[in-house]
Design a protein around this nucleic acid. Structure first.
Length: 463
RNA sequence: UCCCCGAUAGCUCAAUCGGUAGAGCGAGCGGCUGUUAACCGCUAGGUUCAAGGUUCGAGUCCUUGUCGGGGAGCCA
């Protein structure tokens, strides 16, 4: 018999007929003369209940000793369940045991475990309800993102993970080398001789694909990247990872308004996809993880985001300075407590703050006519804080070179980036979105280490 | 990296002023039962994170370290 996924079995219109399923035992209850097995195969949140009668040939020898975590295949008849809690159940005619799971040592028992503990057994935590749901939603959201861009004619560009261009700017980078660290070659004056290294010069893991993204946007018009990104910052928070996945669209012939329109549609449509395809998992999160998740997500999908300038945001924040630990004035950075005040207290929905002072933003952002602010935008989500950061890019070569010097950057190091402005320069814009931050938003999970399969953080690269 | 808090049974936690290390869940055994976080009874289970110090005596106090949590910075 051909095995089916449990999701397909439970989606059947009516009981009746033979089925075969394969999966892992979540829990087992023994009755007089028969046992209830609950099987999960990861295709959906729900388990399927299997009734195993003592008349089965291997009942006493193999089925009674089964415990949580064991792997089995079940052949039997799908029948309406007389019990409460499930529509159908399988009356087993044959049960094959693939592998047992010693109950005395198997760490996942049928009880609640803390997320901290589950992080120490990352090889087994996908077998729990919560992490199974996260894995499905993560996969679904990833698909929705590709679909969103594809529907709009965006080209998916694979930007490099190793970069030797030494011009990515912000953020501590991981070094990539094949040099023998116990015996590093030196030049006559004592410096490390990178000419002997694999790339002949220092190389690092990427902190952003944006600059390379701009190359392809100024040829293919609309592109996006979606790949791993690395930051060697010693950040110990629930919102930072050393290895995370980032989505970075870049659009030619597009100003900041178009950039914001895309970002807003992006969040709304990809969340709508989850409503349409992953509602069972979202309801689980709403029930067990955070009872406000669905309300928050509907609020995002149903309402236009609030858009206001940095100057207007400051005018609001200054009035509440007595409530803040860090007082603000025009020119201050917007910190976590201020972000939350805007998105959670004032507007109660995502807020897009635009036109920041040039001194607190990157050199490549388009300078406004006032010479004080740049065409930057950050989207602040309730509970998450900054989820998207973007800008219109400076497309005037003279202004860009001047801005580089203001940041003590040598334009010569950016020769190819400047070439994009030298030849056929166009207004263009883009943004970066942290994939795991969006997963926090849609699942209600609070620690970013729990929405990526294998988190990499300072002092932790297990599994 | 900074501030605060924590680390005790497989897991989640308790242990009063420094004085014999406890519970629930889980596990093992037995019972009961179309059960579903099943239920009832019994049993086992400990280098109290590590190293050092104070003390007649340290889970408890002190120092250093490791790891974790909350907050901050950096950012996505």
């Amino acid at each position: 018999m051909k095995p089916m996924r449990i999701k397909q079995v439970l989606a059947r219109e009516a009981a009746g007929g033979d089925v075969m399923i394969q999966g892992w035992i979540r829990t087992k209850r023994d009755s007089k003369g028969f046992s209830f097995l609950e099987i999960n195969d990861g295709s959906m949140m729900a388990n399927i209940q299997v009734v195993a009668d003592e008349k089965l040939a291997n009942y006493a020898s193999e089925i009674v000793p089964l415990t949580t975590g064991a792997s089995v295949a079940i052949e039997g008849t799908l029948v309406d369940s007389p019990g409460k809690g499930q529509k159908y159940e399988i009356h087993a005619e044959r049960i094959m045991v693939f592998g047992g799971a010693d109950a005395a040592s198997y760490p996942l028992q049928k009880k609640r475990h803390s997320f901290e503990f589950l992080r120490t057994i990352a090889h087994l935590r996908p077998r729990t309800n919560t992490f199974g749901a996260i894995a499905r939603v993560r996969s679904g959201l990833s698909f929705a993102i590709h679909q969103f861009f594809r529907d709009r004619g965006f080209v998916y560009v694979h930007t490099p993970i190793i970069t030797a261009s030494d011009c990515e700017g912000a953020g501590e980078m991981f070094k990539v080398t094949t040099l023998d660290l116990a015996n590093v070659p030196r030049t006559p004056n004592g410096a490390i001789d990178f000419e002997q290294d694999f790339f002949g010069k220092p190389a690092n893991l990427t902190v952003s694909g944006q600059l390379e993204g701009e190359i392809f946007a100024t040829a293919l018009s609309n592109i996006y990247t979606f790949g791993p990104t690395f930051r060697a910052e010693n950040s110990n928070t629930a919102r930072h990872l050393a290895e995370f996945w980032m989505i970075e669209p870049e659009m030619a012939f597009c100003d900041l308004d178009g950039d914001m329109d895309l970002a807003e549609a992006f969040l709304q449509e990809t969340i709508q996809y989850l409503f349409d395809h992953h509602m069972e998992d979202l309801e689980f999160f709403n029930q067990r993880i955070d009872t406000t998740v669905l309300e928050t997500l509907h609020n995002i999908v149903d309402n236009p985001f609030e858009r206001l300038s940095y100057t207007d945001a400051m005018a609001i924040l200054v009035k509440h300075n007595d409530e803040f630990e860090y007082k603000v004035q025009w020119g201050s950075d917007i910190q976590t407590e201020h972000e939350r005040h805007l998105s959670e207290t004032v507007f109660k929905k995502p807020v897009i703050v635009t036109d920041y002072p040039k001194s607190i933003k990157a050199f490549y952002m388009k300078l406004n006519g006032d010479d004080r602010t740049v065409r930057a935008m950050d989207i602040l989500a309730p509970r998450i804080g900054e989820i998207i950061g973007g800008s219109q890019r400076e497309d005037d070569i003279a202004t860009l070179e001047r801005r580089m010097r203001e940041f003590n950057l040598d334009p010569k190091d950016y020769w190819w980036y400047l070439d994009l402005r030298r030849y056929g320069s166009v207004p263009h814009s883009g943004f970066g979105l942290g994939f795991e931050r969006m997963l926090l938003l849609v699942t209600g999970m609070t620690n970013i280490r729990d929405v990526i399969p294998f988190p990499r953080t300072p002092k932790n690269a297990e599994f």
